[in-house]
């Protein structure tokens, strides 16, 4: 799961409102990689259209938690939107960082969603629907 999807995803429980952003808890005990960086094609135009959709505060916080260097700045201005370096930095964080093993925890209700092989399990039990 990319950080892009993480930036869109909210807690799925019906009883829970505003469960965003989900806290990423990486699984460090196993010998597989819990997090990976996969280079992908950089398309500045796509990132430009993506910017208004991102919750910047959440993205900045997540990047800090995952110790991503150089990461993204705490805020950006209108001029930054045309800056290739800035767009590249956003691309690297949002499109290239993958969460592979671990869990997502709702900050509101503490519901845990396991992530395995990069696929979060968002299935609910019958009483949560």
């Amino acid at each position: 799961m990319r950080l892009l999807t993480h930036n869109l995803l909210m807690c799925n429980r019906k009883q829970c409102t505003g469960g965003f952003p989900l806290r990423i808890v990486l699984d460090t005990d196993i010998d597989k990689d819990a997090q990976s960086v996969e280079e992908s094609e950089f398309r500045p135009e796509f990132i430009q259209h993506l910017l208004p959709k991102l919750d910047w505060e959440a993205l900045y916080k997540t990047a800090q938690e995952l110790n991503l260097s150089p990461g993204v700045p705490p805020s950006y201005s209108e001029e930054d939107k045309k800056d290739e370096n800035f767009l590249r930095a956003v691309h690297d964080v949002v499109m290239d960082v993958h969460i592979l093993e671990g869990k997502l925890v709702c900050p509101n209700c503490n519901r845990e969603y396991p992530v395995s092989k990069g696929i979060p399990n968002m299935l609910l039990t019958n009483d949560e629907v």
Partner: peptide
């Protein structure tokens, strides 16, 4: 989804029952 992973799918995938509803940030 495992087949998709093996096939090198380019998007992100979630295991989810759409009949239960799904939640993304509104208007994304």
């Amino acid at each position: 989804l495992d087949v998709a992973l093996d096939g090198g799918a380019e998007g992100d995938m979630l295991l989810s029952d759409v009949g239960q509803g799904f939640r993304f940030r509104p208007g994304t």
